[in-house]
Simulated assay, not measured.
Amino acid sequence: MAYENITFNTSGNITTITINRPSKLNALNKATINELHDAFKKADEDATTKVIILTGSGEKAFVAGADISEFADFSVAQGGKLAAEGQAKLFDFVAHLSTPVLAAINGFALGGGLELAMAAHIRIASDNAKMGLPEVSLGVIPGYGGTQRLPQLVGKGRAFEMIMTAGMIDANQALQYGLVNHVTTLEELLPLAENLASKILKNSPVAIEAAITAVNAGFEDGENGYEAEITQFGKCFGTADFQEGTQAFLQKRKANFPGK
């Protein structure tokens, strides 16, 4: 698939996906969502990719929201379909990806942009970042998982305040809320993302995939997170990574995980 709205680069087991619509502040439209789905799928299926970094082009925005012009005249049925298809194709898809996804939030992350960042497994932000879910100011609510993931990350009361006021918070407030893990300068944002990725790369990709499955299970209706943890823990014992990791520990050497 030829990309018009994103860039895709793999180097040293890290794939960087950059949303590249600077004239639209990297707003999400249907074409961009389709391209992102394809890029994440491609990276996840690539055995050489162990970590995915997601960011936006330029210095102003990660993703400044959805492209409102695409759905301003939608009917009830079309609106529901828009949310369902978007969640399945991109937001839930990213959240359940077996490869860890790190969102490097540069500038505005609003509406669908913040929802996309929240779908990632780890979030870091530049000190000029602004985050919010302004949908109620348009007469609608977040439709790409925002009403669910934001309370999980910051708590119910803070989520209600952010959603109901349609306001933005800055990077330091997001750090205080637990919405992001780290805040740094814009210049150091990608180096920090790469540094975190390098730490992840030292560990078993099979165990990391199992951890993603177990953690996600604790936030899903009908799933028992503890049971999922037990299952995934047990499965690890049958992997080559477990054999390598334990033998390396006992032999006091650095593990060289085969990823199997």
Rank of each mutant, 00 (worst) to 15 (best):
Y3T: 02
N5Q: 06
T10F: 09
T10L: 04
S11V: 10
G12A: 04
N13S: 15
T16G: 02
A31I: 07
T32W: 00
H37Q: 02
K41P: 03
D46I: 03
D46P: 04
A47V: 12
I52D: 05
G58E: 11
I68H: 00
S75W: 07
A77D: 05
G79F: 09
G80T: 07
A83C: 10
A88N: 10
V94T: 10
P100F: 10
I105H: 03
I105E: 01
L110F: 12
G113T: 03
G113W: 03
L116Q: 05
L116C: 06
A120H: 05
R123E: 12
A125E: 03
K130G: 12
M131C: 12
G132P: 15
G132K: 02
P134H: 04
P134I: 00
E135A: 14
V140G: 01
I141C: 05
Y144W: 08
Y144P: 01
Q148S: 11
V154C: 12
G157P: 05
R158L: 12
G167I: 08
Y177P: 08
Y177W: 13
E187A: 15
N195K: 15
A197C: 14
L201V: 09
K202M: 13
N203K: 13
A207H: 06
A207E: 01
A214L: 07
A217G: 12
F219G: 05
G222I: 04
Y226Q: 14
Y226R: 13
E229W: 11
Q232N: 09
G234A: 04
C236S: 13
Q243K: 14
A248C: 11
Q251S: 13
R253S: 13
K254A: 15
N256G: 08
N256L: 09
